[in-house]
Amino acid sequence: MNGKVLILNQDYTPMAICSVHRAFLLVFLDKAELVESDQEFKLRTVNQSFERPTVIKINRYINVPFRGVVLSRQNLFRRDNNQCQYCGSEQDLTLDHLIPRSKGGRSMWNNLVTACKKCNAKKGDKSLDQVGMSLKKAPYRPTYVMFLRNSMGEMRKEWQAYLKTNKVA
């Protein structure tokens, strides 16, 4: 029973991702409802065949407190696809403050980017304009749904309707 299943709250907002085994148990015990299933594969016992869940909806609304993405080195690298935002390199990555800390820049989503050591040293404690460098894409604060979507790598087609979001700056 390999695979992942998207769990939706009662109002169809994405909550989490779980294993097929856990999702099947939630549906079997009437704690969740099957929303989407895999049409190619079934779950089989000796006597029965069951639909293999890909998206389930919890029957009872669960109040989930605000889920922000924690600002961490790993999450910044993930947001920037493990690439230097100046040259595109994937080697010797570090973090760079767009407005240097020595000039009052803070450690925030909109001020931090992934940079290789070479580009970070070239920029130093200067602004992008002073050095003549530019970013491949502007930094932004990701949403929880974006991280949920991006953490899975290849997203199942059944999930796309439930995980649509825009970037939040």
Rank of each mutant, 00 (worst) to 15 (best):
A115F: 13
N150F: 13
A121E: 05
Y144N: 02
S151K: 05
Q160F: 00
M146T: 05
P142V: 06
M133E: 07
K123D: 02
A138R: 14
N120F: 00
M133N: 06
L163K: 05
M152A: 09
K122H: 09
V145N: 08
A121D: 05
Y162A: 04
K136W: 03
K123S: 08
L128D: 12
C116W: 06
E158N: 05
K117Q: 12
R141Y: 01
M155C: 12
T165S: 13
K164I: 07
T143V: 12
F147G: 08
R141E: 15
Y144I: 07
K126P: 03
L163E: 03
Y162L: 05
N120T: 11
V145W: 00
K118Q: 11
F147E: 02
A121M: 07
P142A: 04
M146R: 11
V145G: 13
R156S: 07
C116K: 03
P142H: 06
K164T: 09
T165P: 00
S127I: 06
F147C: 09
L163Y: 04
K117N: 08
P139M: 06
A161H: 01
A121G: 06
L135Q: 05
M152Y: 13
D129L: 08
G153Y: 10
M152H: 10
G153N: 07
T143G: 13
L148N: 04
G132W: 06
S134I: 07
L163T: 13
E154W: 10
K136E: 04
G153W: 12
